[in-house]
């Protein structure tokens, strides 16, 4: 984006415009990396008339290439670990990750199972955590709103894919 050779003033306006668009219509993609479906049906319920996340501009997308927010559920299994990384890498920058549910945060009841790598932020950096088993749709909306508010107030979270070392030391609480 910086190669447009715009003046600083125009760059500033462009950045503001992008931020405005990003905050008002975050498109989400959902991936279940080993969840029990409990969180997934609550995410789906979030989109249906009672809760209607679309009024906040949140739209569920089919393709990672169209999405701004990756909503992850469940602990990460060995088989879906690479797939989760791939989806994350396919998403255009800047991208944000919301981990939904106890398992996504800590591994939940599945801690110690042989096919479970662990929680989401052991594989990709997470920007917002929504606790609960499963979280209520209101909580999921709250998590998204908190993420958007953080974006509105401060600098967006790191947009480059962190190195392995950074991943290890990644402190999600800063957002």
């Amino acid at each position: 984006m910086t190669n447009l050779n715009l003046s600083d003033e125009w760059n500033g306006i462009l950045l503001k415009l992008k931020k405005w668009a990003r905050i008002n219509s975050p498109w989400a993609i959902h991936y279940n990396s080993g969840s029990c479906n409990g969180c997934d049906i609550e995410i789906l319920a979030t989109l249906t008339p009672r809760y209607d996340a679309e009024r906040l501009g949140v739209k569920l997308q089919g393709s990672p290439r169209h999405a701004d927010v990756l909503i992850c559920t469940g602990p990460v299994t060995l088989q879906s670990r690479d797939r989760l990384r791939r989806i994350y890498e396919q998403m255009p920058d800047p991208k944000f990750v919301v981990a939904v549910g106890s398992c996504a945060i800590s591994g939940g009841v599945f801690q110690g199972c042989y096919n479970v790598v662990g929680h989401i932020d052991e594989v990709i950096p997470v920007d917002a955590y929504v606790p609960g088993c499963p979280p209520r749709p209101e909580a999921i909306i709250d998590g998204l709103v908190k993420l958007l508010t953080a974006l509105k107030q401060g600098d967006p979270p790191p947009t480059e894919r962190p190195t392995e070392l950074e991943l290890e030391n990644y402190d999600a609480a800063t957002i």
Partner: peptide, 25 residues
Amino acid sequence: FLPDDWPADVYPLRKEFVAGSATAV
């Protein structure tokens, strides 16, 4: 069910397989 990169001679439901985390695998 097992992942593609699972080692060939490890069988999870055998008694000698210790149900550790995947890092052990």
